[in-house]
């Protein structure tokens, strides 16, 4: 059973809380540096686009935000599934923490998309399949946040949220493939798993930098939210009481 040890440790809120304490400053530093590097590179040093000119520079925020909004949904749904199968409370803590982060990233991809759409397409908003399915994603995230707040019983809230999260996973491949399956105003994907990117390398590298920055930023924020939620849920346990007493001694 020793190869399952990491899994059981991961299930311990206390172990998670103390283990991640030292990671936070490193993740913050690396994501901060990469965000600044990618932003300066994308805004000032990447060449303009032959068709869109400078408005395409919004891609350096729009694509990473949308990427993490989709991946964050899988993080939330898988955490919900692990919580359901193994009755692991840490998994539910991660699931709950992923919801507001995903909602914020989905909101960002919708807003940056709307602002980008105005000068290029000629409209802020169009009910096309990509944009509408992304709006549904926002409502899924908000629905899980609402479910978490609506139940008196923590257990019922966690199970209901996990169920909604799992049903909602259907939406992710729909968002991803919508631009290929239907006639949409939104263009097909620039970065694909199966073929070469359709963006010139001088514009691709800052984009990859920003995507990496958003990944690390996501890990940082997920850890921060999870740590706060652990303190809330474990408030009456001895280790949190000891921790609170330690904190009280600090100035």
């Amino acid at each position: 059973m020793s190869n399952w040890q990491w899994f059981h440790r991961l299930g311990s809120p206390r172990w998670f809380y103390y283990k991640t304490e030292g990671w936070v400053p490193w993740l913050a530093a690396v994501s901060g540096i990469l965000l600044v590097l990618g932003t300066v590179w994308g805004l000032a040093f990447a060449p303009p686009d032959y068709q869109q000119g400078n408005s395409y520079r919004i891609i350096y925020l729009h694509v990473p935000a949308a990427f993490l909004a989709l991946i964050g949904y899988y993080v939330m749904a898988v955490a919900g599934a692990v919580g359901m199968i193994w009755r692991m409370k840490m998994a539910f803590v991660v699931m709950k923490s992923a919801a507001p982060i995903g909602a914020a990233l989905t909101f960002l991809s919708l807003v940056t998309g709307a602002i980008w759409g105005k000068p290029t397409w000629g409209t802020w908003w169009e009910w096309d399949a990509r944009i509408t399915s992304m709006l549904i994603l926002l409502f899924l995230y908000l629905g899980i946040m609402a479910l978490q707040a609506a139940f008196q019983s923590r257990d019922a809230a966690d199970k209901a949220s996990a169920l909604l999260a799992l049903i909602g996973t259907v939406n992710i491949p729909i968002i991803y493939k919508s631009v290929d399956w239907w006639h949409t105003l939104h263009q097909p994907a620039t970065l694909k798993l199966t073929s070469a990117p359709t963006i010139h390398s001088s514009m691709l590298y800052p984009l990859l930098t920003m995507i990496l920055a958003f990944y690390i930023f996501y890990a940082l924020v997920l850890i921060l939210y999870t740590r706060a939620e652990i303190l809330r849920r474990e408030g009456r346990t001895q280790w949190v009481i000891d921790l609170v007493k330690e904190e009280a001694k600090k100035p």
């Binding site: 032959y50 000629g122 263009q187 097909p188 963006i199 514009m203």
Partner: peptide, 26 residues
Amino acid sequence: TQVLAKHDEKYMPPEVAETMAAVSDG
């Protein structure tokens, strides 16, 4: 009553687009 432009998923600097234009019409 409304005309929207649908752009593609390709991004490249103007210089590259010019050299590409010789191959395809871009």
